[in-house]
Amino acid sequence: MSESENREPEIHEPVAFGQQLMLAREKAGMSIDEAARALNLKEETVEAIEDSALDKLPPVTFVQGYIRTYARLLGLSEEKILSEFEAEVPHDLESELHPRSPSQVGTNSQTPVIKLVSVLVIVLAALVLFYAVYSYYVERTERIEQSSQAADNEAMMQFPPEAPLIEQQSGITEDDAPTAATQSAYAEDEEIQTEAGVSLQPAEELQPEQAELAEEVAPEVESVPDTAVSDVSIEEIMPAAKPQPITGGDILAVSAEQDSWAEIVDANDIQMFSGTIKAGRELNLTGQAPFEVFLGNAPGVSLSLNSISVDMAKYIRYNNVAQFKISVEDGRARFH
């Protein structure tokens, strides 16, 4: 029920709606009894309306209707009286309803608070997910960048500034033995061309101390086998040439005489190449040995690893496909 307010009919401006009705009724020369009969109401109800005694009356819905018909009967403005009634007796037309039996309250997903909280939780979850995916992605790209740069960077970083600068030209074809032009940064500044087979000795690691050691020892070494170049320069070149097959910096050269499909994966599971190599093309791939090599037309392709040519004849199957894993050990290609 609405708030029932029992206000005494005071004489003030403007006159209360009940009083207005009473005055109009008296003016029309109508008794309460006559009015009640015309309205099909009980006398007490009409009296209660005139007294504005809401607690003696049924719910507001009915009272409004009674007032409307009463006003019409007396020739008063319905709207005016009703607006006065509303102003005088604040009420809510919605009745408060209750279940007759104890109820089980169902889940309620529609109250504004729960709605807001649910939306917030969903947004938060979406943000967390987004952040997780983003950080994973960033980490992954960093890792790939690191490993691909390793070849370039590590060689430089492992040598002190006074170490010889190595410049390798790797536009090498498989037939002519790869020539590594190395420049010595110190000693006599001699530029010496050596055969790759000799100079590109595979070494697991080369420490700067070793380079220095080699330098110190160099003058004393007398016997250098079958090379036309001077002893000193050979000894100087050896440390200079050795850095190439550094861990993480293995170079796999693939040259195709015929079109061939190839897939090459290095030891870090990084796919270095996948696709078709056109006839006459060459690829120089830098990665970490051992490499996993998968060739579609193996007889039409020749490989060399760190300038050591690889003979893969026995791995070529009847359908010209070859799949193997290679690395270089002690100057020879080793199949796994």
Partner: peptide
Amino acid sequence: RLLMEETGLPVVTAE
């Protein structure tokens, strides 16, 4: 009004 006359009961129109 018609219903009031026909039934003899109070009839109110809702807001």
